[in-house]
């Protein structure tokens, strides 16, 4: 012990004793946990012992080559539609905020049209459009043009129709998300850039969009997960992605429920991976805005195994 000056000696004399108290009991939590465990056990028991679910059939088709191809196509559709949606969506958002009333009006009409009609209608529409087109050509409006094809069906295939349907619809939603992000950026940022003599589009690209991303990214993750499932609507025009493939097999083998389980397992697997990815992307983009980053699941697990304080 060293001597301290008279003023503070009273406070510094020793640390206060740590509190030892009886913790509050939570009987309600135990009751709730008990009920849930019983219900869960019943469900598992039903699923395992019910012969109608035919888990052997599920196992047989889970890695079937057609199913795997369907999975691959579902992933491809999701990527194409989201890339189309994001690029076109940001373009539409910038147009929507343009000072030119015709440009912003056009973006408004696009969003109104594509958000206002069901995506399944749009899919069927794009697939059916060759019926009302005699030819597709490129050229001067109302002037001469170069014929690309006189059989539009060769260009608007099933895949193209699906991509158009999903991508153009997604663009309308992404446009609103991107617009919200752009509007969330402080006006002072644009002013500062203007005062430096930066033109409008450069300001948008260098100053506004990078800051809008933090607001745009989380809902984009949701949209991607949603798109993965929405892509199953491609089945209505007979494009063989995961859901339609499992339908075809089910129709042939009459194993409807087992094949729906197969498709569901794959959808769950893919959305789980996207959820984890989304978590890390969001965590990365929240840097600088919050002082303490939330723990990653791995860190939480470590905390659980080795209680706080024990680990470094």
């Amino acid at each position: 012990m060293t001597t301290t000056d008279a003023d503070s000696s009273g406070e510094r004399a020793g640390r206060p004793e740590p509190i030892r108290a009886v913790p509050v009991r939570h009987p309600g939590r135990w009751v709730a946990a008990g009920i849930i465990v019983v219900l869960l056990a019943q469900l598992v028991n039903w699923a395992v012992t019910n012969p109608a679910l035919k888990w052997n059939v599920v196992g047989k088709y889970l890695f079937n080559s057609s199913i795997l191809q369907g999975v691959q196509r579902t992933i491809m559709l999701t990527i194409i539609a989201m890339v189309m949606g994001i690029v076109l969506g940001i373009l539409l958002a910038v147009m929507r905020l343009s000072a030119n009333p015709i440009v912003s009006g056009a973006a408004w009409v696009y969003i109104w049209l594509f958000r206002g009609t069901p995506v399944i209608v749009q899919l069927v529409f794009w697939y059916s459009i060759p019926a009302v087109l005699q030819s597709i050509s490129l050229g001067i409006p109302f002037g001469p043009g170069w014929l690309i094809t006189d059989d539009p069906k060769t260009i608007i295939t099933q895949l193209v129709a699906v991509c158009l349907g999903l991508g153009l619809n997604e663009a309308a939603y992404m446009a609103e998300i991107a617009r919200g992000g752009i509007l969330s950026v402080d006006e002072g940022q644009v002013e500062a850039a203007s005062a430096l003599g930066m033109p409008r589009l450069l300001t948008m690209r260098r100053i506004v969009l990078p800051q809008a991303m933090r607001v745009i990214i989380p809902p984009t993750g949701n949209e991607t997960i949603s798109m993965l499932k929405t892509s199953s609507l491609a089945s209505v025009i007979g494009y063989a992605e995961l859901f339609y493939t499992s339908e075809i097999i089910a129709a042939r083998t009459f194993q409807v429920i087992p094949l729906l389980i197969v498709a569901s397992i794959w959808y769950l697997f893919m959305t789980s991976i996207l959820t984890v990815g989304q978590y890390y992307v969001e965590r990365r983009f929240s840097r600088g805005s919050s002082r303490n980053l939330p723990l990653t699941p791995l860190q939480k697990l470590r905390r659980l195994v080795r209680p706080a304080g024990a680990a470094a």
Binding site: E191, A192, A195, L196, G197, P199, R206
Partner: peptide
């Protein structure tokens, strides 16, 4: 824009670009 380049402006709320370092803020324009 051309004319604004010849006039510097400093704002009450600074309005630095938060996604760039101090050096990048100065170098941007």
């Amino acid at each position: 824009c051309q004319k604004r380049q010849e006039i510097g402006m400093v704002f009450q709320s600074f309005n630095l670009f938060p996604h760039m370092t101090a050096l990048a803020n100065v170098m941007e324009a």
